[in-house]
Computed example of a mutant assay.
Amino acid sequence: MSHKQVQAAPQVAQATQQPKAHRAWLIAMLIACASASQTAQAAGGDADTERENLARIDAELERVQVMVKEAAERAPSGQRVKFRYDWLLQDLQLLRKGVADHVDAPRQPRPVPPLRGDYRQ
């Protein structure tokens, strides 16, 4: 076995031993990027297509949340440096909230109260 082969083995082992939560986060980001790319490519696409894409993103983020919760339950205790699954779950929830806020936003202009305009007495 050559010296180069010996050095490559730990890197491969390290890459395959990533926590599930880290992989879940990467999957979520890839899905979001792919959907954003599809949406950008369909510039001028209709609102229904965008809503379908956002619904798929939300469903995938929900699945990732389930994976993170399961990984958190199985996480070893007593480690000096811990992975903060709770922070990851908060970020995933924030992503889902952003998607939901956009989908639920009114599509019609909202009435805005008029400004007073005269500020002198």
Rank of each mutant, 00 (worst) to 15 (best):
M1W: 01
S2H: 06
K4M: 04
K4G: 02
K4Y: 01
Q5T: 03
Q7E: 14
Q7H: 09
Q11P: 00
V12I: 07
A13E: 06
Q14E: 12
Q14L: 09
A15M: 03
A15G: 05
A15Y: 01
T16R: 14
Q18S: 11
Q18M: 10
P19I: 02
A21G: 12
H22T: 14
W25N: 15
L26E: 14
L26T: 10
L26A: 14
A28E: 06
M29L: 09
M29F: 00
L30D: 14
I31P: 00
I31K: 11
C33W: 00
S35I: 06
A36H: 08
S37D: 08
S37I: 01
Q38M: 07
A40E: 09
Q41D: 10
A42L: 08
G44I: 02
G45C: 07
A47P: 05
D48Y: 05
T49P: 01
T49N: 10
E50L: 14
E52D: 12
N53K: 07
A55F: 00
A55T: 14
A55R: 11
A55S: 14
A55Q: 10
R56I: 03
D58W: 04
D58N: 13
A59M: 05
L61F: 12
L61Y: 11
R63I: 01
Q65N: 13
V66F: 03
V66K: 14
M67E: 14
V68W: 04
V68T: 07
K69Y: 03
E70F: 00
A72C: 03
E73I: 02
R74L: 10
R74A: 15
S77V: 08
K82A: 15
R84Y: 04
R84W: 03
D86W: 01
D86Q: 11
L88H: 06
L88A: 15
Q90N: 10
D91F: 02
Q93E: 13
L94T: 12
L94G: 07
L95N: 11
R96V: 03
K97D: 10
G98A: 10
G98C: 09
G98F: 01
G98T: 07
G98E: 06
G98Y: 02
H102E: 08
D104T: 10
P106H: 06
P106L: 03
R107W: 00
P109N: 04
R110C: 05
P111V: 10
P111R: 15
P111G: 10
P111C: 06
V112C: 06
V112F: 00
L115D: 10
R120T: 15
R120Q: 15
